[in-house]
Design a protein around this nucleic acid. Structure first.
Length: 440
RNA sequence: GCGGCCAUAGCUCAGUUGGUUAGAGCACAAGAUUGUGAUUCUUGGGGUCGCGGGUUCGAAUCCCGUUGGCCGCCCCA
């Protein structure tokens, strides 16, 4: 048994696990590039205050934070949003709008690991800065769907629940609640699906019992699952701001429908996302079976860049985590199996032939082919077995008989046919084989 | 931070009421086989039974603690 173990919640990626992780990253990047997002990266270690400023002092309990040798209070980043706000904020005036940025990075949270949650995990973050209207949400939610659909997941596998904190706050204000009361209600709404009426406990303790009629209206609003139901509730309330917001909703849903994504989207005012910094549309992606924690989450945060010291800059973003993503792909059998990747296996007769083989191996590798060979002298039988296991489509045989004639035996491992080729044309012969689909 | 379950080889596990030197399959390696691939046979390496303490003539087995894992609560940016 090893004397040292990895820290709790920190994963080790053996080659097969890393291949799966890379597969996830590859699909994410493909989607982001297709949507015209630029990839950036930033430090893993940040000033502790960056996170306190955004989330309050309580956040420190859930951070990997410490004092560095220079006496600085620092923390391993638990999320990307404050960092990207700083990056964009610092150069906001020089960046072409809209600013569409993405990143893949590792994040760290000092929390107890459980299913779908580790202490170190990777996130795919995508944000659009500088666009206040729902056009940004259309683009971003479109990317979110594509980032999941790219793996072969369909509307039967996942969906995006869409809600709106702006409308929630408008509606609660129309019910006569002040700002603090409204925030407390949103906290209750966030929990309501899970714990039911118990969710209002905190509100009741702080502000007293909600009037029965008000509470009934809140619960009805929470149950809204369509634009028409939303309009039915809000039209009587009236007002210009509400009318404009409903127009935003129509634009957003029509836009997503026009992209062919309607099947993935569900209006659901039970989603509010507890975080106070969200200011408008909020959304979460879930698996349809409801067995996993949220796959992705996001929303609009128009005040955060300014709060963190930048200019006023509207923003909307989302993040997908690698842990739940991986679980979902395994569950739906959409995670490919990754084996060794070799194009050509070189069979070497003995030490005398090794030197000659090395020259051609180096030439093939320089030409970009993935070439492998036994590091030690090995019986032919073993070498062919190794060749088959390597996944190579082609074996080149450097034996004493062949080299004496100035040739190499060229064996197609898929149909076991073989012929001799002049040594001088090894690279050309391999290139011909692979460019003609492996049937040369 | 709190609670439940678990911990034997790289992996999956067996190990009787506590009793010789802790086993199997898979995987890995070598040979049978000195020029041609999945099979078969033989052999081998690999364990202070998570760690520490206690009970006992004797502990993988019973007790306590601890660390780690899984699951849940809190939280979930």
């Amino acid at each position: 048994m090893a004397q040292f173990q990895s820290l709790p919640g920190f994963r080790e990626f053996y080659p097969d696990a890393l291949a799966r992780r890379n597969h996830i990253f590859r699909q994410w990047r493909r989607a982001a590039h297709a949507y015209g997002f630029s990839e950036y990266d930033a430090p893993v270690l940040e000033p502790l205050d960056l996170y306190k400023r955004k989330s309050g002092d309580e956040i420190e309990a859930q951070l990997f934070s410490f004092t560095d040798k220079g006496g600085r209070e620092v923390a391993l980043r638990p999320e990307m949003t404050p960092t990207v706000c700083r990056l964009v904020g610092a150069k906001a005036n020089a960046l072409k709008r809209p600013i569409k940025w993405c990143s893949i990075g590792e994040f760290y949270r000092y929390e107890r690991a459980q299913k779908g949650r580790e202490r170190a995990f990777f996130q795919f973050n995508c944000d659009i800065f500088g666009e206040p209207g729902p056009e940004a949400e259309i683009e971003l939610i479109g990317l979110l769907v594509q980032s999941l659909a790219g793996f072969g997941l369909g509307p039967a596998d996942f969906y995006v629940r869409l809600s709106d904190r702006t409308l929630w706050l408008h509606y609660l204000a129309s019910l006569g609640l002040n700002e603090d009361q409204a925030k407390a209600v949103l906290g209750a709404v966030d929990k309501y699906e899970k714990v039911g009426d118990e969710a209002f406990k905190t509100y009741t303790e702080t502000f007293g019992e909600l009037a029965g009629e008000t509470k009934a209206k809140i619960l009805a609003f929470l149950g809204i699952k369509s634009l028409s139901a939303l309009e039915a509730v809000l039209t009587p309330v009236g007002g210009e701001a509400l009318a404009a917001r409903l127009a935003d909703w129509r634009k957003l849903l029509n836009g997503l429908a026009a992209m062919g994504l309607g099947e993935y989207i569900e209006v659901d005012f039970g989603v509010v996302r507890g975080l106070a910094y969200y200011t408008g549309f909020v959304f979460e992606a879930f698996d349809r079976k409801g067995e996993l924690r949220a796959i992705a989450g996001g929303g609009r945060y128009d005040d955060l860049v300014e709060k963190l010291g930048g200019p006023a800059l509207p923003a909307v973003g989302f993040a997908i985590g690698d842990v739940t993503m991986g679980l979902l792909l395994e569950q739906r059998a959409l995670m490919p199996t990754f084996g060794p990747t070799t194009d050509v296996y070189v069979v070497i007769g003995g030490e005398a032939e090794r030197t000659a083989a090395f020259l051609d191996i180096a030439g093939l590798r320089a030409a970009g082919y993935r070439v492998d060979y036994p590091l030690k002298e090995l019986a032919f039988g073993k070498q062919f077995k190794a060749a088959a296991e390597s996944g190579a489509k082609l074996a080149l045989i450097y034996g004493g008989d062949e080299l004496a004639k100035g040739v190499v035996k060229f064996r197609d491992l898929s149909d076991r046919s073989e012929h001799e080729i002049p040594r001088a044309s090894v690279v050309e012969a391999v290139r011909d084989y692979f460019t003609t689909g492996g049937t040369a």
